[in-house]
Amino acid sequence: MGRGEGSLKADDIDQLEEATAAVQAWKYALRFTEMAALKCVIELGVADEIESQGGAATLSHLSTALSCSLPSLHRIMRFLVHHRVFKARRAATQEATTYLQTALSRRLLRGGEKSMAALILFEATPTMLAPWHGLSAQVLSKGTAPQPFEAAHGQDLWAYTAQNPEHSRLLDEAMACTARLTAAAIIGGCQDVFEGVRAVVDVGGGNGTFLGMVVKALPQIQGINFDLPHVLSSAPHWDGVEHVGGNMFESIPKADATFLMQVLHDWSDSECIHILKKCREAIAEDGNGGNDHGSDVKLKKSKKVVILEAVLDDDYNGERQFEEEEDSELQSWSGIRLSLDMVMMAHTNGGKERTRSEWAHLLAEAGFSSFSFKPTSVIPSVIEAFP
């Protein structure tokens, strides 16, 4: 075999990289169109209508049922079929084209345990999009300027949410999306985290979705859903769950275990340490363990703080990560976790996604004697911390 045969020449590689870069740059420039199209079909109820027809519906039917423009809907659906959100069965006429549900399009349904419609709608609101325009200003300020959300709206996310009931409702519904997915993963794959636990406080539990699902699956557990009073004012009833209003920076109800699901990533390191200390106080021994050594061991094992949060790679390497994503994009959550870190930068004052070593530092500073990490089938890992 002659020199250079059987492999790409350097010039060919350069040309391929340039061609790929051109396409990728255009994709980045127009990536907002994906969110916009998904928002459109969720608002129209396209996936819901297709589902009501048994999982398949013609363009003509959808246009009539949803009272919308047939040519415009065709263009939206053509775009989303290209992106594999829906499938299409071609016909002799455009109107007779049949659109079919996929696993992805069912995530756009307004209801169901796997729905992510509320999360997409929330992130697509003008309120949540505006801070992104201030990201570069925040980076240039080196910490002296207000965070992007505060710069855009004059107050931080939590103050804004407390004063705007509609935004608060959208946030609660969006967080319920992630709560349902996380709860299903924990119940299905990590039930041992509840071993010996009699009472659980879900700190910052929103409308109670996570704890409601846990207690339904494990009715022996007493659930306390703890959040700010204005959050709980519209929270639904869940069997076996008590809603308790309060402020996690001041005190947390007593229980065997406290859960923090995607709460700490909203806060700075110092604030996280403060919250974790309050959680440790809430699980302090009550002195009623008796003299049974076996019972004491079980009691100590159940006394813990359980953190459900993304854990970034400590040894993140861009080139290696790129290769992994190319090989196994659907199996890897790493890119989503890094995107969430960008969300924290835009929407919170000091919040971020953390690496394993960063979590270990916070837990040690908060006074925990031991802790463990366990990955799940979804974005968060299970971090168990023992006093």
Results as ranks from 00 to 15, higher is better:
55 G>T: 08
254 K>P: 03
59 L>F: 00
292 D>C: 09
198 R>V: 06
64 T>G: 07
352 K>L: 02
58 T>L: 03
228 L>G: 02
312 L>Q: 15
324 E>T: 08
305 V>D: 05
152 A>I: 13
150 E>H: 09
255 A>C: 04
76 I>S: 12
325 E>Q: 10
372 S>E: 10
87 K>D: 14
149 F>M: 06
211 L>N: 05
233 S>W: 02
123 E>W: 15
347 H>D: 09
322 F>G: 04
84 R>L: 12
10 A>H: 11
286 D>T: 12
208 G>V: 02
107 R>I: 02
107 R>S: 12
314 D>R: 02
65 A>C: 07
57 A>R: 00
40 C>L: 12
21 A>E: 15
236 P>L: 06
141 S>K: 00
241 V>K: 03
95 E>N: 08
163 Q>C: 09
2 G>K: 12
58 T>E: 02
147 Q>S: 13
66 L>H: 11
288 N>G: 12
349 N>S: 14
75 R>P: 03
320 R>Q: 09
78 R>P: 01
213 M>W: 11
12 D>N: 07
337 R>V: 04
292 D>R: 01
189 G>Y: 00
193 V>A: 11
321 Q>P: 00
149 F>T: 10
3 R>D: 11
293 H>I: 14
2 G>H: 11
114 K>G: 06
82 H>Q: 12
281 E>M: 10
206 G>C: 02
289 G>C: 12
107 R>F: 04
145 A>I: 01
18 E>S: 10
240 G>L: 01
